[in-house]
Amino acid sequence: MTAGGFDSATRISVGQALTAEDIAAAGLHADEDVARYATRLGDDALILSQRLSWWISRAPELEEDIALGNIALDLLGHARSLLTYAGTAGGKTEDDLAYFRDEDDFTCVHLVQLDPGDFGHTIARQLVYSLYAYELYTALSHSDDPTLAAIAQKAVKEVEYHVDHAWQWAMRLGDGTEESHRRMQAGLDQVWPFVDELFEDDDLTDRLKGVAVQPSSLRPAFDDAIRRVLAESTLELPSVPQARTGGRRGEHRESLGFVLAEMQSLARMHPGASW
């Protein structure tokens, strides 16, 4: 299956046309469903980046200000590419989508919306998201949609580092001191109710067979990886019930409204302005 209007498809290949600017300049036109799919992945990356960038100037050590900043920057890059591509369906820019959509129109999962907790909570969330995103982008690299495939092929290399970062910290915290073990386990317990939502198939992913990744297909590899890292870190797989979610349908946590209020405030004070 192709996603409408691929006259410039040859320009979209690995190592080429991967940034938001390149995608915007390539004259692409994503079809509606592909745009919806790109939007949800873009929203996940955008909100997680927004959450993570909070740490810059607040991290436990300078090296972590830099590392977490790096990851936030990578995620923002993924969001920009995905939202730019999504915007091509309706003549919108990445900024139209990021700053001028209301809460109901965002389709991010609840995991990325959770209020920031301590460093253990952040590492737990990063571990879960990065392991999921690694499997996601690995699979999406083979998408029939060349733009999504190219974005994914670039992203997966970066996410590999994010996995490594979270994995290393899970081990340090799990194995470090009594307090760090307790906090890391608590972080895992807090984010765990939001894991299932990552792997839910729905009408959209069903319709986009070959283009989108079936989220449920990623679960076994994720489970394997998470079991390994938890075992190495002397941490336990949480046994907590799953939360009611609905992020993909625009049903969000209260916290998302606050994230968006802050993120969008300045842009909305000056509609139509350029920066």
Partner: peptide
């Protein structure tokens, strides 16, 4: 960083503050 008025400006600002670290 959290309020940068465009995503491009946000990216540049994150990179800058990170450079200072």
């Amino acid at each position: 960083i959290s309020r940068a008025p465009s995503l491009k400006r946000k990216a540049i600002l994150i990179a800058k503050v990170q450079d200072e670290a």
